[in-house]
Simulated assay, not measured.
Amino acid sequence: MNLPDLKILRALQQDASRSIADLAEVVSLSSNAVWKRLRRLEAEGYVERRVAVLDRRKLGLPVTVFVSVRTDQHSQRWAEEFAAAVGEVEEVVEFYRMAGDVDYLLKIVCADIDDYDRIYRKIIAAVPLRDVSASFAMEQLKYTTELPLSRIGERRS
Rank of each mutant, 00 (worst) to 15 (best):
S31M: 01
L41R: 08
Y46V: 07
I119F: 04
A52F: 09
V51I: 15
R56I: 03
Q140M: 13
D72G: 15
D114E: 13
E146Q: 15
R151I: 11
R118P: 01
R77Y: 03
A84N: 08
V132F: 02
L9R: 00
E80A: 14
A79V: 07
A21R: 14
D101P: 02
K58C: 05
I113L: 13
L106Y: 05
D112V: 06
A33S: 04
L9I: 03
I8T: 01
A16S: 12
C110D: 07
S150V: 07
V132Y: 04
E80C: 05
E91T: 06
D22V: 02
D72M: 13
G153P: 14
K36P: 00
L41V: 07
R155M: 14
S150M: 07
D112P: 05
R70W: 12
R121N: 04
K7S: 00
L129C: 04
K36E: 11
E146R: 15
R130P: 05
A43T: 11
D55H: 07
A99I: 11
N2D: 14
R155V: 14
D131F: 01
Y104Q: 00
T144S: 15
S75L: 01
I123D: 00
S68H: 09
R37Y: 03
M98I: 04
S28D: 14
M1N: 12
V86L: 05
R49L: 10
W78M: 04
Q14S: 13
D112F: 06
V102Y: 05
A125I: 00
V102I: 13
F66T: 02
F66S: 05
L6S: 09
E81V: 04
R155N: 09
M138L: 15
S135L: 14
V26K: 03
P4E: 13
Y96W: 09
S30W: 03
R57Y: 14
K36M: 10
W78P: 01
M138C: 07
W78Q: 03
V67C: 12
V53I: 11
D55M: 08
L106A: 06
A84W: 09
R97T: 14
D22L: 00
R10Y: 09
R50D: 06
V51R: 04
E44K: 09
Y120G: 08
L105Y: 04
R18P: 06
E90P: 01
R151L: 12
N32Y: 03
A33L: 00
E25K: 12
A24P: 07
D5C: 09
R155C: 05
I108G: 01
